[in-house]
């Protein structure tokens, strides 16, 4: 896995970029249009290694840290991690340090554009951690209550909750 490189050509050589070879959908033998090692979890995470990432977890938490290690399950090691809380038009950062995040809890991760580093769009303003934390907690509790009442009404239409208590944001 460690030796994989996006720039290694897979056999046979990749077609020039921008060309779309004919589709082949599971037909034997599959004609590789791009090097097959491009299409692995490892290749997808390889070029994010040592980059500053924003990791959104399934429970709604946002972590910002440097990706130092990962595996095929999407387990991640993040260094110098902060957790960023958003509520209303406020945000706050909490220093968290070194994290190993189990892959299944990850929703999405994105490379932070260093030109826009730590850019938080207006009207969001940095505020006191305690204040934002308390507001966040209250909002989560409110959302949970509303969600419960919504699910009750929608049960009449044969629906059941999708999130099962997970926060929406």
């Amino acid at each position: 896995m460690e030796n994989l490189n996006l720039h290694d050509a897979g056999p046979p050589g990749p077609p020039p970029p921008g060309q779309h070879p004919p589709q082949n959908l599971g037909m034997p033998p599959p004609v590789p249009q791009l090097p097959p090692q491009m299409f692995t979890t490892a290749a997808q995470l390889l070029d994010l290694t040592d980059k500053k990432l924003m990791v959104a977890l399934r429970d709604g938490r946002k972590l910002i840290g440097v990706l130092r290690s990962w595996d095929q399950f999407g387990n991640l090691v993040l260094q110098d991690t902060i957790e960023r809380l958003f509520v209303q038009n406020l945000y706050a950062d909490i220093e968290r340090g070194l994290f190993l995040v189990r892959g299944e809890n990850v929703s999405l991760l994105g490379e932070i554009d260093l030109d826009k580093d730590d850019y938080v769009p207006p009207p969001f303003q940095q505020a006191d951690v305690e204040k934002v934390f308390a507001l966040r907690k209250a909002e989560n509790a409110m959302n949970k209550k509303l969600d419960k009442s919504k699910q009750k009404k929608l049960a009449a239409f044969g629906f059941e909750g999708e999130h099962h208590g997970e926060a929406i944001l």
Partner: peptide
């Protein structure tokens, strides 16, 4: 807002 300084994403 957490996605506004992000240029590419890996989505599980």
């Amino acid at each position: 807002p957490h996605l506004s300084s992000v240029k590419n994403v890996f989505i599980r």
